[in-house]
Design a binder for these strands. Structure first.
Lengths: 249, 249
DNA sequence: GCTAAACCTGCATATTCCTGCAATTAAAGC
DNA sequence: GCTTTAATTGCAGGAATATGCAGGTTTAGC
């Protein structure tokens, strides 16, 4: 990785998260901390960020539209994203839905990860493009304005032509009896297709949505392989799902 | 292998992968690193790529695209967008490319406009979704990290199935003799398909790009119907284009 | 104040870059 | 087709850049 690329990545990270740690960057970029320190110093000299003891801060705390509109349960979603990221390995094909949790996942993927991500979500796909070694495939069709994902017959046909290793499913509601449910008919069709096209389905959801229900049925709970929440895996709230043979992380 | 051939290959590589290493090119082209370095230097002098220590980066690499806030020649692009918006009427089907000028156009569309926009550009499509009466169709395929648009065979096939009323083409370089040219081979393929699939082609460009040239050919100047710049229509700079029968706005 | 982490300085090393030059190769002119 | 001319290329040497490491110093948090 060339130096300007590395610095661009650092800048992207600092603008996303408002702060970065030298140690973290050193690990994810696989260079010494001294190099990171020198990069931060250089970027600070050019007024791209503010260098502080231990890392750096973003220049403006209020520039990005993402941070301007506050994300609900941000800390929880970050934690979920971290657990999910650990499941992705090099050369995998990964299907993902949309949603803020998936955006968070896209943001914390290590720059060294070399994989192919397939999604119909505009914001999530845009986030993937910032990673140097990730190939992004966008599913085309009509764009649903609410969810900013593509929906429709074309999209579903395309998804069904794929055989992915993993599918990360951001869910709206999950319940041990009714399984996964959603409130948008068209989005449900897309999710169904994604579940069919992946070897393993991983569900991402904040605990608040567990044991809730929405009008449209996506799939029974046991159709998923793994469930990731911000709770510790042995939390009693998750017990009914473990009983159905779902792996809990 | 002759020098122009070699440089074309380098340019193709850098636009494809965003980045090339001197060592890698030296091996794959079987010439000394000095030769590669001289090539890179020469290409950089002609503004075809950005030379950095150890290799080169594609032109579209700039750390400023992480700061979406500052757009080059913003006032000019707004003016162009206003002229372009006047051409769109209700119930039209409109194909558009990517680029900051097209984002500007998307932003100023009147909320009452009821039309269908088809694009492969992620940022532009996202902008369309903010409009209540606009239907957005996204072209799917591999996402080019440089331009944030989808490129590839699938995308081209889909575009060719469309018959649109208008095509708004954000251009990188236009010249009365060489016509429209661009610096990314894959993007050129998409633009060509869009031109074919539209009844009228409208070119949007800031005056700075007029009478400039890039490595890859898109179409001759007379293949477009309308040219929109921030200049008044009777500016002498535009005279050669008017002579070719292009409508100037 | 104490401690651990982060920092800075200087240095060693490995690349990469540049300059000049000679050898080769392509192109132009006859 | 052959000669002349210009351009291109590779190489040698020294300069510049990038990075990591050792050590002593500063900082932040307790």
């Amino acid at each position: 990785m060339l130096k300007p690329e590395r610095q661009a990545f650092i800048l992207h990270q600092v603008n996303l998260h408002n702060q970065v740690l030298s140690t973290g960057l050193s690990q994810s970029l696989d260079v010494s901390e001294d190099t990171i320190r020198r990069d931060l110093q250089e970027l600070a000299d050019n007024n791209k960020l503010i260098k502080v003891h231990g890392g750096a801060l973003s220049l403006s705390f209020n520039d990005s539209h993402y941070h301007a509109t506050h994300v609900y349960a941000h800390a929880e979603k970050k934690l979920i994203a971290r657990k999910a990221a650990a499941l992705i390995h090099n050369d995998m094909f990964v299907l993902t839905t949309g949603g803020t949790t998936l955006i968070e996942l896209a943001r914390i993927l290590p720059p060294s990860l070399k994989a192919t991500f397939i999604s119909g979500s505009l914001p999530v796909a845009l986030e993937y493009t910032h990673h140097p070694n990730i190939e992004v495939i966008l599913i085309g069709d009509k764009v649903s304005k609410n969810s900013k994902i593509t929906v429709g017959g074309e999209a579903i046909v395309k998804i069904k032509q794929i055989k992915a290793d993993l599918c990360f499913l951001g869910v709206n509601a999950i319940d041990a009896e009714n399984g996964i449910t959603d409130n948008d008919w068209e989005v449900v069709q897309v999710k169904k297709a994604m579940i069919e096209s992946a070897q393993r389905v991983i569900c991402l959801t904040i605990a608040e949505k567990i044991n809730t229900c929405q009008p449209f049925h996506v799939c029974p709970a046991r159709a998923i392989d793994t469930l990731i929440t911000e709770l510790p895996p042995d939390d009693p709230l998750l017990e009914p799902y473990r009983k159905q043979g779902i792996r809990i992380l």
